[in-house]
Simulated assay, not measured.
Amino acid sequence: MARRCYSDAPITGDQATLDGNEAHHLLHVLRATPGMAVTLFDGSGQEFDAEVVACKRSTVELAILESRLVDRELPQPLVLGVALPKGDRQRWIVEKSVELGVTRIVPLVTERSEKQGGDKLGRYVIEASKQCGRNRLMEIAEPMRWSDWLTASDLLDEGTPTHRRWVAHPTGVRPTAAEFAQQLPTLLAIGPEGGLSDGEVEAATAAGWKAVGLGERILRIETAALGLAACLTIPQP
Rank of each mutant, 00 (worst) to 15 (best):
G159W: 08
R174N: 13
T33D: 02
Q236W: 14
P170A: 12
P85W: 01
G13N: 12
A224F: 02
K210L: 14
E139R: 15
G199L: 09
V201I: 15
L226S: 01
A229I: 02
A204N: 08
I190R: 05
P170F: 10
P107Q: 06
V167C: 10
A229V: 07
G213N: 10
V70A: 05
H25M: 05
V38N: 00
G191A: 09
Q76K: 14
L30N: 04
L219K: 04
V82P: 02
G213V: 09
S7C: 14
L62W: 00
Y124R: 07
V212I: 15
V29C: 12
E99L: 06
L155F: 09
T233M: 06
D14E: 15
K56S: 11
T103Y: 02
W92A: 08
P175Y: 06
L184I: 05
N21A: 15
G118H: 02
V29G: 09
R134Q: 14
L121C: 04
A203R: 10
G227Q: 09
E158S: 15
W149F: 15
A32P: 00
L65N: 14
D71K: 14
Q15Y: 06
Y124S: 09
R4W: 08
I190H: 02
T110W: 08
T205D: 09
V98Q: 01
L232Q: 07
H24V: 00
D71C: 11
G13W: 01
E114C: 07
T233W: 04
A83P: 04
W166P: 03
L69W: 14
E99V: 08
P192R: 03
I234P: 01
H169F: 09
T160C: 12
D49N: 07
G213P: 06
G159L: 11
A181E: 12
E158L: 12
D148C: 07
C132T: 08
G35P: 09
T103R: 10
G133S: 08
S44E: 08
N21K: 12
N135Q: 13
F180N: 06
R220A: 11
S153N: 14
L69G: 08
T171M: 12
L156K: 07
G117Y: 06
S97G: 10
I140W: 09
V106C: 03
S44P: 05
L184P: 00
D154Y: 03
A177F: 10
D88M: 11
L196D: 04
S113R: 07
A16I: 00
S7P: 02
L18S: 03
L80G: 05
R31F: 07
G35H: 13
A181K: 14
V38L: 06
G45F: 06
E216Y: 01
R68P: 02
R72N: 15
E127V: 13
W209D: 00
G35C: 13
G20Q: 13
D198A: 15
E22W: 01
A206L: 09
I105K: 01
M36K: 11
A230P: 11
V106Y: 01
S58K: 15
E22R: 03
L232C: 00
Y6H: 12
E216H: 13
R104T: 13
A50G: 05
G101T: 04
D14T: 15
G215Q: 11
L100M: 11
Q90P: 00
N21W: 10
E202N: 13
